[in-house]
Nucleic acid binder design. Sequence first.
DNA 1: CTTTAAATAACACGGGCGTGTCATTGCGGC
DNA 2: GCCGCAATGACACGCCCGTGTTATTTAAAG
Lengths: 229, 229
Amino acid sequence: MLFKVAQGCYHKDVPRLVDHDQRRAEIGEAAIRVILREGLTGVTVRGIAAEAGWSTGSLRHYFGNQHELQAYVVRAATETLHRRVLPRVQRPRTEGSVVDRIAGIVEENLPLDAERREEYALWAAVVEWERHHPPENGSVTWDDQRALYRQCIAAMRGHEPVRDPDRAAHPHPDPQVELWAALLHTFVDGLASQLVNTPGELSPGTAAALLRSLLEAVPGQQPDPHALQ
Amino acid sequence: MLFKVAQGCYHKDVPRLVDHDQRRAEIGEAAIRVILREGLTGVTVRGIAAEAGWSTGSLRHYFGNQHELQAYVVRAATETLHRRVLPRVQRPRTEGSVVDRIAGIVEENLPLDAERREEYALWAAVVEWERHHPPENGSVTWDDQRALYRQCIAAMRGHEPVRDPDRAAHPHPDPQVELWAALLHTFVDGLASQLVNTPGELSPGTAAALLRSLLEAVPGQQPDPHALQ
DNA sequence: CTTTAAATAACACGGGCGTGTCATTGCGGC
DNA sequence: GCCGCAATGACACGCCCGTGTTATTTAAAG
């Protein structure tokens, strides 16, 4: 101990050789590559060390055991996901019908092409981790998704978009928004499940068409809801 | 070879000690217990041998390698599933509203209680296997599900129930039946996915309520469709 | 330069796995 | 009673895993 505290404050007589946080991030990137290749079960001490180009002994300076390593990797994967898909989801959409615009947003979360399948593999790894290590304050990934679909349904029904992320995390005053957000959320999970489990039975095109059919069944749609930011 | 052909016809000079098929079935039951406990990845040669009470060498007389063992187990699990849930699905339902009766059928496929969670674990193992070994003639499990939901939606819309299983496997002439069967199928998969992946976010009661909400959104419902056999 | 301790790497241990080998057992046929 | 062979089970091999120990390297501090 006594070699580093907080932000770059070093104690005497101790050589600073590497930045632990930066090294951990580097290992996290290697681990994410492994996850995309082999899934969360492929995240082994030896495997990550080989992928990152170090020995297992070196890794143990940053992660005491496999559990710590995996926990860190899952956190890194979550951040990578947010960084990659959030901007796409929040991209302003002004063309097409209401259903098309909402569908475009929702499709960013579906494994419809190679890129999103990769991201979905990351997502699945996070869910897999949360399944075995249930977060006590509710699943962040689940809550984020639900908030997104709440916003989508609310917009379709002509409600003002809620800018405050905290407010968006709470139930919508319109009970129909809550209901159809839940229906949409569940339906999207079903689409994703079928796309990865039985790709021969459900093509990406059919999945997109089904999504639009469900959106068209949402009651109380406004012809021109407030612009989707 | 030359020790047994077809049904109990033995060749000369060969001691018949055990019935291979019966022994394989016995091993299959042990393997299913292991699947329920540890999933398909828990189906190891050593593990199954221990569960069944034999040595690994004995198992190798019936299964040349792990792949054969798992393939057999998946087939056995599929049959067990059909034997257990099909009668429940086809149980005559005469009480409650149309939506309630259909929901009762669909719920037999959802991991809503301990018993059905067990069956869902089996089901998931089958899907997992089919994902890595795609059947060329289409997924039997998927086709069965789709046919069931087709029948459900058709009944809600007042169509005559199709008795011939072959006919039920084909698309329904009513395009709305096809569409909503697909929507329902996808939605049920989503419910199942959330029930097992994020049980803290979706209770069995909420899942059942959501299912009923979706069924109520099915267009063209008849107040009193033909009795559900 | 010497000292010092972090950083690194190499290795060992114990365990689980799939798979192959081989001696033993015991039933069926003579 | 005796033989043959399917059936059985114990064991070995090689591989991968997590983890702990230990020696070597390296760079900062004096």
